[in-house]
Design a protein around this nucleic acid. Sequence first.
DNA 1: CCTGGTCATTTGACCGGTCAAATGACCAAC
DNA 2: GTTGGTCATTTGACCGGTCAAATGACCAGG
Lengths: 339, 339
Amino acid sequence: MTTDGQAVTLRQVAAQAGVSRQTVSNVLNAPERVDPATRLKVRAAIESLGYQPSRTARSLATRQAGLIGYCLARHPGRSLFTDPFLHALTEAIEATGRRLLVFTAPEGAEGLATYADLIAQRAVDAFILSDTVDGDPRHGWLASRGVPFASFGRTWPEQGEQPGRWVDVDGAGACAELVRGLHSAGHDRIAFLGWRDPVPVGAAKDRQRGWRDECRRLGLPEQAAYADSDSMEGAAHAAATLLDAAQPPTAIVAAGDLLAVGVISEVRRRELRPGHDIWVTGFDDSLLATSVEGGLTTVRQPAAEITATLVRLLDAGPGRSGVLLDGRIVSRSSAPLDL
Amino acid sequence: MTTDGQAVTLRQVAAQAGVSRQTVSNVLNAPERVDPATRLKVRAAIESLGYQPSRTARSLATRQAGLIGYCLARHPGRSLFTDPFLHALTEAIEATGRRLLVFTAPEGAEGLATYADLIAQRAVDAFILSDTVDGDPRHGWLASRGVPFASFGRTWPEQGEQPGRWVDVDGAGACAELVRGLHSAGHDRIAFLGWRDPVPVGAAKDRQRGWRDECRRLGLPEQAAYADSDSMEGAAHAAATLLDAAQPPTAIVAAGDLLAVGVISEVRRRELRPGHDIWVTGFDDSLLATSVEGGLTTVRQPAAEITATLVRLLDAGPGRSGVLLDGRIVSRSSAPLDL
DNA sequence: CCTGGTCATTTGACCGGTCAAATGACCAAC
DNA sequence: GTTGGTCATTTGACCGGTCAAATGACCAGG
């Protein structure tokens, strides 16, 4: 509304409305304390001047930055879920009137200095953590200094509970459900395809555990293979070893969409039809899942629910708690399950 | 350093060092004005108290938020370059002592209200724009109110220059270079594979133009096909039509990595070898490029250079200017070019 | 000896809000 | 007619820095 460069202040609104600055402040922050008649008068002045309070001034007075910090993972493009997660997180935070500040930091304990700086500068009020690794140092460090945070992902401590509050998707449960679905569709040899990684990723182990436990429960053989890295090529090679076995699997549960696409390409190369001769499933419901022919059956991480929960936990105060959310199986033609 | 929750202030440092608050401020912002001896004394006090100035207080006084706004695109996961771009952008901004605030906004002209709010609240000093569309309303709007911004991507105005300052990657140039490389490797029939999209994406047209112009210059036939969407499946079908032609191409230049992977899968399905029988190239050097067997020849967008330039342009003041950066061709086995 | 100029440092006001205590109007109760 | 309580509104101090002008010490020049 202001065509001039200068911003409108509280006092200008007060002058225009013929009240004191505090009354204007009250209209915005505690309207019930203000007489309805003056409230209207002030609101009109606010409107006509196009006033919006300065976040900075308010932050200084309230000692709240109104910003949540989120560290971008070192390896961009590593996970296909990063992007939808970030988008959902931003919306969830904005829904509470705050905003998201993203930053980068070195990996591991070194990166804690960056977190320390942001707190010391009072640039953020709290942190959202993701890309957690086994024994992640951040959680304990932040909790010990009383910095509010919420974690997407577990730190898988050897024993005891992890510090602070977390949300995660039940990868084990989802994979178990996939195995059950495949089994009731008539599959008896359901293989798992994971990847080896320099960094131990708890999520991958979790998914495999769900598959293994369910296979045992159903008395199915446990065939597994591993890609050298999280790539289509590695997955294709690993899938080849599975398919070359004396008793090849009729279904392959892959630990991620990228792997699953690699499996599908190997299946196709052998003139076998995914979803008919060999059923294939992925994980993440990334853009790849709708990109392959007929679509990939996969597990969707409920991004909106995850981030809404994270934001809720941020304000839950100190303490320890965890929320485990269910992934939703999205059935497409690579493994036409009926759910 | 502070184990108590209370933050250290400038005045506490001043008291500790036995100087006035302004002297401490000068040590931080204009050290040359301070006597070396007192400078050391103050530095020691800062160190011992673990002092860091409050961003908020400084922002209020200087009227600079120290934050740059960046709007996340509506469709998360649409482009594989989003992730590396965001990472590089964050680092580039941090290198100048500022930080990145990300936000979401409705598409098109409606979203301008969100930009307006951020400015009115003085929450950000400037904006970085990306995911620009043809005739993007944001550029003119921001420029007309004197809000500093820099755009990754052109708005392709029908006539005249686009408002403000921009950086883009020369997609046309890179595709022309691919065509030249393929031609000198002996290819005479080099097809283009793009995609149709509800939103007109200037970048895709730009890449195709580069391919077309170079083919004409070399006197090569212009074969092109289009995927219904930016997906592997669509690309595979489009590739099939190309390969079924009476005079099938021996090389296919795809407008994106995802398309290229789709092309490769179709090529393999026909028992043809990518990089031998049919050469295939992509665009973006995304995680898919190293994920397919042998790797995908593709064009790398220079993320660090792009973002460094964007940040530089932010501080260039009002005016119009554009920087066109070269993409770098990364040769892998899907099209073993020697460059 | 007084003036004028640097240099290092300090002082008071200010950025634009919020908080807590103070003011004043109005009305019911003793 | 004084006291006490609510309600609406105002005042002064404060959040933690920065800016601009003022102060004081020191030294060279007329």
